Lab assay of single mutants.
Amino acid sequence: HNGKLCKLKGIAPLQLGKCNITGWLLGNPECDSLLPARSWSYIVETPNSENGACYPGDLIDYEELREQLSSVSSLERFEIFPKESSWPNHTFNGVTVSCSHRGKSSFYRNLLWLTKKGDSYPKLTNSYVNNKGKEVLVLWGVHHPSSSDEQQSLYSNGNAYVSVASSNYNRRFTPEIAARPKVRDQHGRMNYYWTLLEPGDTIIFEATGNLIAPWYAFALSRGFESGIITSNASMHECNTKCQTPQGAINSNLPFQNIHPVTIGECPKYVRSTKLRMVTGLRNIPSIQYRGLFGAIAGFIEGGWTGMIDGWYGYHHQNEQGSGYAADQKSTQNAINGITNKVNSVIEKMNTQFTAVGKEFNNLEKRMENLNKKVDDGFLDIWTYNAELLVLLENERTLDFHDLNVKNLYEKVKSQLKNNAKEIGNGCFEFYHKCDNECMESVRNGTYDYPKYSEESKLNREKIDGVKLESMGVYQILAIYSTVASSLVLLVSLGAISFWMCSNGSLQCRICI
C-alpha cells in the first residue's frame, strides 16, 4: 500500500475532517465546509473527530445509520420544511452556546429548535410527501429539559409530546424532565432520530412541544462500492481501485494482509504473511546465498510486491572476458508455465471484495464479540484455502523447474562428451581453451567436438587428477538461474548478450 488516501476510480472521497457522521448530518456549525458535499467514492472519518452533536445527546440507531450510509455515493440536500413558512405559530430561531460559531450562539444547520411564540405553543402538524424518486433521509430531535421551569419557559406545556409517523415508522416521544450533570454547559439533553422515507411515502410530524424540527433532508443515491473508513492518512493526487484505512492498494494479487476493511475492488484479506509461490528452483544453499535460486511470486499485497520470474541462460568467462545470454527457448517455456500457473491461482482465488467494518453500540458488546468470532472463522478458512492451494502448486513448480534445468544440462553434456569433466555440482571442467566463438557454439548447439578432442585428450593426460582450476583450465557451469522482474525479464530476452569482463582471468566458464 502507499499510505495515502486516493480517488477511487477517479472519484474523490468525502473527508469529514474534524467532524464525524453525526456532526455532518445534523449540521454542526463547525462542519459548515461539508454542506456543499454532493457525491463521493467513500467517506473518511478520523479516529478522534471532535465535532459531532454540539448540544449533548445521542443519535439513536447511529450504527444502523452508518451502515445505511456505507452504500450511499451521492445525496441532494434540500429544504424539507421551509423555515419561514412551515411554522407560522412558533418561534424557530432557537440557539445555544453549546453550538457556538465564530463566538456567537448558533444551532444545527439542518434542524430548527421550535419554541413557544408569545406565551403559547399551539399543537403543530406538518407533513412531507417524498417526490424525489429515491429514498429521503429525514432527521429530527426531541429536547429533554433539566427542570419543569425550563419546560414551561420554552414550550408552555408541561405534558408535551412529539409524534412522527410514516408508512414504515411510527413513534411517540415524551420529554424526560430530570436533573443531569452539566455537559457542554447544558443540564438538558437532546436525542436525535432518523428514518428513511421511501419514494411516494408521507411523513407526518405532530407536537405540542420539545420538537427539534427537520429543516433540511437528504435524497440518497446508492453506490455499492462506497463505504466509510476511519483513517488518519492524508489525501493525495492519486487514483486506485482499492482503498484501505492504511493506504491505497493497486494490485491484481488475490490476497492482502494490510487491513480487513477495504473499499472498492480489493484482494481478499488473509492473516498469512508467507503466502508465496515459487518460480525458481529448489533451494541450493551456495546459490541461494548469491540470490540466484528460489525466486518467488508473492500473492499477498503487503507481504511480497508483485511476481518475480526466474529465467535460464548461459554465463561464460574466458580470456576475452565474461558474458550472459538467455536461453530463449527454455526461458519462454518457463515463463509460459509460470504465467499459466499464476493465472490459474488468481482465477481460482481472485474475487474482488469490498469489506466494511460493522458498528455496534456499547450495549451490543456481546453481539460485536460474536460477530468478530464469526469473521475470524471465515478469515481462517480463507487463509487455509489460500495456503493449501499455493503449497500444492509450489511442489509442481519445483518439479517443473528441475526438468527444465536438467534438459539444459543434458544438452551441454551431450555436446562436450569427454572434452570436459562433470564435477558433480552442476559444473563441467573443460580440457581445452574455449574462446567466445567456442562458447557461442555450446550455447547454440553447434559445438565442434572433433575440433577440440585432441587438445582435450592431451590435457587429460597431463592433469592426472590435479585440480583443474589450479592448472588454468576452464570450467563450464551447467545450471544457472538469475532473477529478474517481469519487465526486466522481457528486456533481457530482447538482448543477445551483455558482457562482464574479468581482467586477466584465465578461467573459461559457460553457465546455464
Rank of each mutant, 00 (worst) to 15 (best):
E461P: 09
T351I: 09
W304G: 08
D327H: 11
H401Y: 06
I296E: 03
D380W: 09
M349H: 00
A334K: 06
G504N: 15
F430Y: 11
L379T: 12
G264V: 03
N232K: 10
H315A: 08
Y384F: 11
P254R: 02
G357H: 02
K372E: 10
K411N: 11
W311N: 06
K241I: 13
V261M: 14
S344K: 03
I338C: 11
V405W: 05
S485E: 01
G280K: 05
T305S: 11
G323I: 08
N371I: 15
N239A: 01
I463Q: 07
L392D: 03
G313W: 11
L391H: 05
N350K: 10
T273C: 03
S330C: 08
Q328Y: 12
S414H: 01
V491S: 13
E301N: 07
G465F: 11
T240F: 02
L468W: 07
N385S: 07
A248D: 05
I510E: 12
G323E: 06
L391A: 08
A355P: 05
K462W: 07
T262Q: 09
E454I: 13
A325W: 03
I496M: 10
V356W: 07
I335V: 15
P260T: 02
V405G: 00
L379K: 10
F430S: 09
E393L: 01
G424W: 06
G377C: 05
N239G: 00
N369R: 06
E364D: 13
F353G: 11
L506I: 11
L416Y: 05
G377A: 09
L403K: 04
G504M: 03
K406Y: 04
V374K: 08
L363M: 14
A478M: 08
S286F: 01
G306C: 06
L490H: 00
Y312V: 14
K406A: 03
G306W: 06
K462I: 10
E265A: 12
G424K: 12
V442D: 03
Q352K: 08
N444Y: 07
E461D: 04
D327Y: 04
R460H: 14
L370M: 12
Q415V: 05
C434E: 13
D375H: 02
F255S: 08
